[in-house]
Write a protein that binds this DNA or RNA. Sequence first.
RNA 1: GGGCGGUUAGCUCAGUUGGCUAGAGCACCUGGUUUACACCCAGGGGGUCGAAGGUUCGAGUCCUUUACCGCCCA
Length: 904
Amino acid sequence: MLRLPISRLLRITNYELRIKPMAELAKKYEAKHVEEKWYAQWMADGRFHGDSSDGGDPFCIVIPPPNVTGILHMGHALNNNIQDILVRVARMQGKNTTWVPGTDHAGIATQNVVERALKKEGKSRDDVGREKFIERVWDWREEYGNTITNQLKKLGASCDWERERFTMDEGLSAAVVEMFCRLYDKDLIYRGNRIINWCPRCQTALSDEESEHVDVEGALYHLRYAVKGKRQKIVVATTRPETMLGDTAVAVNPRDERYKDLIGEMIVLPITNREIPIVADDYVDPEFGTGLVKITPAHDPNDFEMGQRHDLPQINVMTDDGIMNENAGPYEGMDRFECRKQLMEDLKAGGLVEKVEKHQHAVGHCYRCETVIEPRLSPQWFVKMKPLARPAIDAVNDGRVKFVPERWSKTYMGWMENIRDWCISRQIWWGHRIPIFYCDDCNHEWAARTEPEKCPVCSTGNFRQDEDVLDTWFSSWLWPFSVFGWPETSEDLKFYYPSKTLVTGNEIIFFWVARMVMSGLEIMDEIPFDTVYIHGTVRDDQGRKMSKSLGNSIDPLDIIEKYSSDALRFSLMMITATGQDVYISDEKFEIGRNFATKIWNAARFMEMHSEGFDVRDLAFDRSALGPDDQHLLAKLNEAVAATNDSLERYRFNDATVAIYDFFWHSYCDWYIEYAKPILFKGSPEQKKHTLQVMHHAFSTALRLLHPFMPFLTEELWHGMGYNHSVETIMLAEWPEKAVSDGIDAGVVKYVDGKHDLIRVGRILRTEYNLTNKQTAVFNVRPSNETYAEQIEADKTSIMALLKAAEINVDVGFAPEGAMPSGISTLGTVYMSIEGLVDVDAEIKKLSAELDEVVGHLENVKKKLSNENFTSRAPKDVVAVQEKRQEELIEKSEKLKKMIDTLNG
RNA sequence: GGGCGGUUAGCUCAGUUGGCUAGAGCACCUGGUUUACACCCAGGGGGUCGAAGGUUCGAGUCCUUUACCGCCCA
């Protein structure tokens, strides 16, 4: 029974394996108390920890480390909920499981937070200095850095907290340095003076991925430049006129007939009066603007490349904080947008503006502070990506790494195949400092894994370390192996790497997922995970992304407070279709809360009837299963199969629906109602048998539900006394196999029909406004003898569910006079009532039903008389239609007869 | 400009390889205080599946075109 590693077994036996009597369940489920209690208990018992020394089948997930500055939002809730489900299922399946948690130092974001705090004290980071500033950041982390991990605990995340890591901790920092040095030694890291995305507010370079393009309603400025030595003026179009101060050429397409003669001429720039050439370059699109473009090699990536081709000078016109510099002449000291305004006014005054058009274009914004990015020339460190990308492309192409949903592999491929070098240096202080050293005596530059004592070339101590730090993602991309101690080798690393599934949102496929595949293959020579599950984005109920500025975010902690963590988890899973964005509003979490209450009450019901019942003995006689027992167990089997199948395909919503339907409808609506007469008035033997079936089904379904609602299920596992065999439901056996012994498909089908018959009877009651207290007499005319026997044997049960005083079963039943009636799959149901039958209403109802049946029948007949259909459609499809035709004919004839009888 | 996703009941969404009489939750309407549950029970109304073509015996489900919404990349 216990298929567990020994060390965990020992932890279990630390408990007294005493048999607890069924605890008395409170009238109302107190989620808050229960959830706190169980999380603390699980932690105290070390339930979340996995260790390689226990051996077995490894199952590892690494968390996408949230920013230390972060607070839990719905996206995190969704993301971690999914991971927790996967991990909890694996754990119940007996796998050796670890879910490694941790946080990300989030360089720019965290630095911004601390800078803001300093600002309140009236200080800047320069005032305190680098060393003190970094101390401040660590202090900040000490104080607030656990916020988000504590919040994850409220969610019920079964993270292996003993393994918690931080991307700036010692081990991971060593991994970062090692990685840098290896790539540097392989010439895959280089320093280059190139156009990068510069954030003037954060005052640092950013990678291409960190520059978010936003469509902006801007303008296309048409400027007149004078051709030297001629009266002619040419017109160039630009979206950033202020960069003209740094223009070093004007370009035309060589095939553009209009400007053929101009190539080689010189232009005199307005304001600065610099002279620059007109060059020909294929890059220029003759259709754009006037077909003449200004070239500013220091402020635009395309211009930069053209500049290289034509050997043009590069003039940077701005300072680090986006202020015009000495190259901007009269505009020196002006903010870049201020300059744009003033410059345009000046040009207008000089008659140098042809026109200004409205123009929509994409403008890069800093992903941390939303400031407009300034593309600019700057010396930075880069990783050469093409060599790393090749194996990562293969890994997805040959299926070693699979995306779910599959379409995301296209996104991944598109990026990989057009990959550009990664700018990894950042001009901030909080992060891993670049391990490059420069000798001031001999100018030697080298990478070092540990703090050097002297220059390896000239042996002097006169050297300094590069001032920059690395992009935060340079530590994140090592996460799947660095968390296990790499570059040290460890048993855990060998055992748990590669991890199983990476669960994340689509927005970090480039930032993180793609880069992890590259680093994993480069360093470990193996993929870091075999499946990437991409979930949707959480939005508000109007489809807007949740954000603080919109004020539309729903705080998961509020939801937990209001509805419980289980409710949050279950609801979220039930409304989230695989890979689809999810729209939420407060009310949606009622689903989970109501479901939890429903289960709680079902448990209370069982408890009330279980006095003297021993839950250790659930070995009921499978040869003695009644129709309803068989039906319930068949439904349970279906739920088990559906849950397993859905989980395998990451269709969490399907899994929750299967479990929900089983509990609510099969178990509560039908079986409990069926069981009531037995439990209230049955013999001790009948009672025992029924309770055995109930507890068997309930405890199985509870286990299926556990990954989705961990707290409630644990509470009931104990409350119902199921912990006699396995102390915690977390380690109870995961239901995988359906047991069909003693279940007859024909009997199950009969019970489906019985439910239909009861439904028909209830409709009759409703139509004649019978109150619950009024009993009625029903006459059933079964469609065949088998049904007649089955119904006859099952009469008391049907009577109870129909609140019938009497049920007469008779294949030859014919009503004397008018009687309300309806047709079920088992046969026709008649209700005898005292007083007048509303004959007209009855005829109307039956006629409407007849119309419908005849309509369907015509459709079916049409199909079957179509030779193309009967000859081309698969046999079984035709057979279904033929059977349907029979049934519809039978039904329509019955209806006609019933109407005739009423017409008298 | 390229790519992807969405468009199905009043609302929010399911609908896997084309074969249903198109489903669920919420909302709505009608009944209901039997000892599990009103966070409940029983019943009911309500969509022809964005639009137009096409393939097919058969399309919400495949193809083409198109409209609108959203996202990603240029």
